[in-house]
Design a protein around this nucleic acid. Structure first.
Lengths: 239, 239
DNA sequence: TGATACGAAATCGTATATGGTCTGGGCCGA
DNA sequence: TCGGCCCAGACCATATACGATTTCGTATCA
């Protein structure tokens, strides 16, 4: 299925693309025959595609009833980011000792691009997110544990569905990020203890999460109930 | 599919049971028609079952070629336990503040049973593992993040395929476990910081992992290259 | 003898067909 | 008017059928 050329794959991408771009909104019913007819294939591969989307949490499924685009509650972003903070932190720490000077240089170069993108009069949050992923990918790519690496990949993939780019909402956080990136690089260069690196990487991601949550709280209540500073606890205080 | 009553589900359980009990050994080819005929259904639901097993990593799959029971290298157990240490530690820490005295009492009661099972002249490692899961389930069950909770469940499920019970190999570790359980309970009761609890729970699991790795190294080299004590780093020294 | 090409068997991927299950609307009785 | 029953339509789950792809044995040729 993951293999290109298959119709299941085509159906998967066809549906996913529509969910990502918002043409299929949460609750939209995915009817096998209808989709199959529209793509010009039979229902069998469509069914398989939907099963895969279900496994990714993009659609919900009920036997004898069918599938619909999953409802994502407010907290979905929080849960995903919290999980990503956890696994990406670990992946980065496990990867760190295996990174060469070359890797660090590459990461630093990407971070420079991130810094540059801040200076443009028209800040492009989408591009910032793209570069941000590239930066972190360099850092965790050497993670020797394939399960953890896989979870990191899933987390990022899921984020693409939840938010195109949160940095559009919290541009200030983008600026902070660049500084934290450099700090993280220094820790790695210095050969700091894995746990130190893990918690730094974790905090970095939680920092973005908290910024977004604070922004949302602000929008809701006019008086922003600012969360605490990023904490390594994966948690934040309840209001 | 996850729903009972479906033939996909039946096929899934039929295959999985054979893999778990070792009747289907790694490398065994899973031929759709053959399995379908043997179960008495058509190939379509069997195919779906195999896709699910693939997602769980129990079988590997190649387009136009088919599926076979996944080869699990030596390190598979290590990777799975390391990942479980990571996510279970977090789940436990996130769950801890939501646990009532009732939960703690229940966990302690299970730990008593674990202690009792050590005293029996015939130690039953399988039962120990069962109770052990029950104990930890009490502790992380209140984890509010469904993604992390899900990952914990997957980790445990995967372990059932990898090893029936490692405590048969390292009975000494069973004894240690009981003590660490009590220590963990005290941390939770005392309302310690989430990170403290997280790392304690993580270390607890890594302890078992390291014990098993040391045992394996001992079997291989006669002179056991004992790993370091459990570390919160998720890592251990290379020999 | 070894390499290559051909062809048949095995097996997968997908289309089409069919029976089963759920859902919603209309009819009937209170 | 309202609630319950029944039926028809929609849709899913699975079976069967068939073309497509891979694999592997065998024959042919250098």
């Amino acid at each position: 299925m993951t293999q290109p050329g298959s119709k299941s794959r085509a159906a998967y991408e066809w549906i996913r693309e529509r969910i990502e771009t918002g043409r299929f909104t949460p609750g939209y019913r995915l009817v096998l025959d209808a989709i199959a007819r529209e793509i010009g294939i039979s229902a069998v591969p469509v069914r398989e595609a939907i099963r895969l989307l279900e496994a990714e949490g993009l659609v919900t499924f009920e036997r004898n009833v069918g599938a619909q685009v999953a409802f994502m509650h407010e907290q979905e972003y929080e849960y995903t980011m919290q999980t990503l903070a956890l696994v990406e932190g670990a992946a980065t720490a496990l990867s760190a000792p295996r990174l060469t000077g070359d890797h660090i240089a590459r990461a630093r170069s990407i971070n420079d691009q991130l810094a540059d993108s801040l200076k443009l009069e028209s800040f492009d949050p989408r591009r910032f997110t793209e570069l941000n992923l590239a930066f972190h990918t360099v850092l965790f790519q050497k993670c020797p544990n394939p399960h953890i690496a896989d979870l990191v990949g899933r987390g990022w993939k899921r984020l693409t569905v939840l938010r195109d780019s949160v940095f559009g909402f919290v541009p200030g956080r983008a600026r902070e990020s660049v500084g934290e990136h450099e700090a993280l690089l220094r820790l790695i260069e210095a050969g700091e203890a894995p746990l130190t690196i893990e918690l730094a990487a974790r905090d970095h991601r939680l920092g973005t999460l908290h910024a977004v949550l604070a922004y949302q709280a602000g929008r809701r209540h006019a008086a922003p109930a600012v969360g605490r500073n990023p904490s390594t606890h994966l948690t934040r205080e309840q209001p």
